[in-house]
Structures are given as structure tokens and as C-alpha cells.
Simulated assay, not measured.
Amino acid sequence: MSISLEGRGLHRSFGGFKALDGVDIAVEAGQIRGLIGPNGAGKSTLIDVLSGRADNWGGQIYLRGEEVTGLKVHERRRRGLARSFQRTNIFPALAVGTQLTVAARALGNEGLDDVVEALSLGHLLDRPAQQISYGDQRRLDLALALVGRPEVLLLDEPAAGLTVEESLQLAAILRDLVKKWGVTVLIVEHDMEVIFSICDRITVLHLGKVLVDDLPDAIKTNPEVISAYLGSQAP
């Protein structure tokens, strides 16, 4: 299996605090990789570094075997690396359809039908984003990341604030997209039901380092993971 996204020796510090301390990660093409760990473990920092939204960091990043370490956010985006955010990256006053169209034109791709259909947004295209439900705003945020059909998608807590039902619906959408479009996903998520229901493999961060990287069933029973993070959360 080929590697879609790889980070080697990634490190980033804030003063004397090492947010990332020599992290290595390699995500196979078409895989959904979970990224979990306690608060402050370095999960969002890793997503920022991989997506190009961080400064003062070190290491190397490869996209489909091509080094993209020095590329800016928009350059990585054009090469097929997209992301979503903990807080929705949408424009409240703009209509849903307008936002998607602007994003598509910026990427030189106006083929939005598949994205709109996949995220069930067709009935909301004329409505300002501030007038749709929070769950729909989350799906819009995901749709904006999917415009242009990226090969690698970084998701930073996409289920944050969603109900259990909405979270599971989102998980089903992600699994379906991976199957239909072959997109590779690295997902940070605190909802363990989502993580264990869709991930092919899980990387656990702790104190800026990779604590363990293994299959979901092994993660559930790993004593180090349970002690550091899962505890009573283990399904």
C-alpha cells in the first residue's frame, strides 16, 4: 500500500514546552487514521504543521512521496491536501452555495455536484450559513474542505458539538467518501464512538510523542493508552 501523507521527525515548541517532540507518522492511501490523546498531547499542533498553518517547526512532510515541507497552505491545498477546523471555517452571512462556488473557483474547479450531494446540502444552497443548524454548518465546513476532491483530508474534531446521532451520521459520510472517492483521512476526534467505528488504524499522542500506533482493537486494550487517555472512554 502506498503512503499518501508522511511526517518525519516533526517537532514544535512553545517556549520550553515541546508540543511535538520528534513525531513520525505515515498514513496509507485510502486509510482513515485516527489521532487521539489527552488535551495538550499535540494533536491539533500536528494537524497545523501538516497543513502548513504553523510556524517555527522542524521536520519533513511528504505528500504522495513528494516533499512539501516548505510549501504554504494554498500550495499544499492545490497539491491535494485539505483540512477542516475545530471551529467551523465558514462565512455566516454568505449563502451556502456562494461559499462553495467561491471555494471551487479558487481551486480552478467548479464541479460541486458530487460534494453537495455527498454532504446532503442541496436544499440549503440559497440560505445564509448563519440560518442553518449547527450540524449543517459542520457539514458545510466539511464540504468546503472537500471542494476540488483532495486526496488527503485532515479533520480537526469534526464532530465537536454534534449530537450522538449527528456524530454517527458524519462518521457514516466519511466512511462512504473514503470508499467512493479514495480520499485519505487523518482525523482528530474526542468522540471515541466515532473513532472506533470508522478508523482503520489509530495513532495515540502523549506529551508530544507517539505513544502507540496500532489497530483499533489493540488500542482499546493497550494498558498505556488506557492509563494515559481512554480510561472509562474505551468502548
Rank of each mutant, 00 (worst) to 15 (best):
P92Q: 02
G52R: 11
A82M: 13
L142A: 00
V147D: 02
E224C: 11
N222S: 13
L154E: 05
G58S: 12
K220M: 13
D156M: 01
I132F: 00
D200W: 04
G70K: 13
T101I: 03
L63R: 00
E110I: 15
L50Q: 07
K209V: 08
I219P: 05
L10V: 03
V115D: 09
H190F: 04
A160T: 06
A106Y: 07
G70Q: 13
A129R: 05
G9W: 06
L124M: 09
R76Q: 08
P92T: 06
N89F: 00
I47M: 10
L125I: 10
N222D: 15
G122K: 04
S133K: 12
V96R: 05
D213P: 07
G7I: 08
V188Q: 03
E165F: 12
G108R: 03
R83N: 12
L177N: 07
R76F: 08
Q60K: 15
G122R: 03
D21W: 06
L144S: 07
Q233D: 13
G122V: 04
N56W: 04
Q31F: 08
V96W: 05
H74K: 11
D21C: 10
T101H: 11
L168N: 09
G34A: 10
P158Y: 02
G161R: 00
I202S: 09
Q131G: 06
G122I: 06
V210R: 05
G148D: 04
R12F: 05
E165K: 14
L144M: 07
L207S: 13
E28D: 08
A41N: 00
D191M: 09
N89Y: 00
E67C: 06
V183A: 01
G208Q: 07
V27D: 01
L168Q: 11
D113W: 03
L154R: 02
R64D: 15
H206G: 01
E166G: 02
L211N: 10
D55Q: 15
D141S: 05
A29Y: 00
P150Y: 01
V49Q: 08
V27F: 01
V210W: 04
A95K: 15
D21E: 13
A160Q: 03
R76P: 10
A95G: 13
L168C: 02
N222L: 13
N56H: 12
L174C: 00
P216A: 09
E224M: 14
T98H: 12
E6W: 01
W57F: 15
S227E: 15
D176A: 15
L71V: 07
L215Q: 07
T88R: 09
L125E: 07
T88E: 11
I3L: 09
L215R: 11
A228G: 11
L207M: 14
R8F: 06
A29G: 01
S120V: 11
V178G: 08
I25W: 12
Q99S: 04
D24M: 12
V116A: 13
R175E: 10
G34P: 06
V188E: 07
R83E: 12
R12A: 14
A93P: 08
D214G: 09
I90S: 03
E166R: 09
R139I: 01
L121S: 09
G40R: 02
G208D: 05
K72D: 12
D191E: 14
P235T: 03
L81R: 10
G9N: 12
I3K: 09
L5Y: 10
A104S: 06
Y62Q: 14
